[in-house]
Simulated assay, not measured.
Amino acid sequence: MTTPNAAPDSYYQRTGDHTYKPTVQAQGAWHPDEQHFSPLGGLIVHAIDRYRADQRRADQQGTGRPADGLALARISYDILGLIALDECEITVETVRPGRTIELVEATVTIGGRAVVRARAWFLAELDTTAVAGTHDEPLPAPEQFEPWTMRGVWGGGYIASIDVRRRESAPGRAAAWLSTPVELVAGEPSGPHASFVMLVDTANGIAVRQSPTEWMFPNTDLTIHFHRRPEGGWTGLDTSVSFGPAGHGVTSTVLHDVRGPLGRAEQILTVRPQHAG
């Protein structure tokens, strides 16, 4: 494994058209040689955004058609194994093209091995303001939450890089606002979905049901649904964690920005005791 660059201003540095090197800011919470999935999830959206922008430019040059007007409505990630803190390659392809519905797939490869596969649905946007609404209650504003030193529970460079404001109501039940001053990719602006998504996987760590020094509960997937585009610099998480009796768990989150609820995230967990030695 190569040593990651220590660049405090970004989670990743571009090394090629489709390759990225993580900095120590992307270091995971379960093991120092792993990447935290949260910034990687955002990086995948960033790579998909770049791919679709390139496709639109090529399409316009070939046919003169305008930009597609589609927005990310769902992205699901399958985590296929350990994600080493090392250079990764992200390849993207269109699975189902369309003017109103499009499905895109991305694969992350490290050392010749696929470690994440993601599928993203893009849907056409139109004005449905007259019927818009949700039963999800908005979170209080970030300034109404107390700062929380997440490093008191979790380690790693990623956890050290984020600003967390949290309210815990019970073990496995908490709400939090997250932000970060760290760029996703050095020198590259990120779109609103990538900037938002790069903090979402943190949900599994803000509402712990059991101490991570006694129990392991990593997630093997992440699925995010959006019913509108995120806005602003805060990611809000209203999170509940459930452990079942047979080694499985679910982390469920209502997602918020400063305007209110905007979607949901689900993570399946493998729950097992930590063993000494």
Rank of each mutant, 00 (worst) to 15 (best):
D54H: 10
P22F: 05
A58E: 14
G205K: 02
G152H: 01
D86H: 11
W30M: 07
R166S: 04
D201P: 01
S38T: 12
P273W: 09
R259D: 11
A175W: 08
A203P: 06
P218F: 01
F122L: 12
D59T: 03
V200Q: 05
H18I: 06
A84G: 12
T2E: 08
H256I: 00
T149L: 10
Q13A: 11
Q55S: 14
E105S: 10
Q144R: 13
M198R: 15
G249V: 03
R57A: 11
A47T: 02
R117K: 14
D59A: 11
A141I: 03
Q61W: 02
I110E: 06
H275L: 15
T239D: 10
S10Y: 06
L269I: 03
H135Y: 14
P138A: 03
S252E: 12
A124L: 06
I90E: 02
A276M: 10
G263L: 00
R166D: 05
A6H: 08
H36D: 07
P192E: 02
Q61M: 14
V95Y: 09
W234H: 09
T251H: 02
T63H: 08
R96E: 12
E266P: 01
V258P: 11
W121I: 04
E146I: 09
L126I: 14
R209Q: 10
D78T: 09
Q61A: 13
S252C: 08
V164M: 15
A207P: 02
P4H: 05
D127A: 07
R165G: 06
P97L: 04
L178Q: 01
P140Y: 03
L72F: 07
A194Q: 03
L255G: 00
L70G: 11
Y12C: 02
A265T: 06
T235C: 13
E214G: 15
L262V: 00
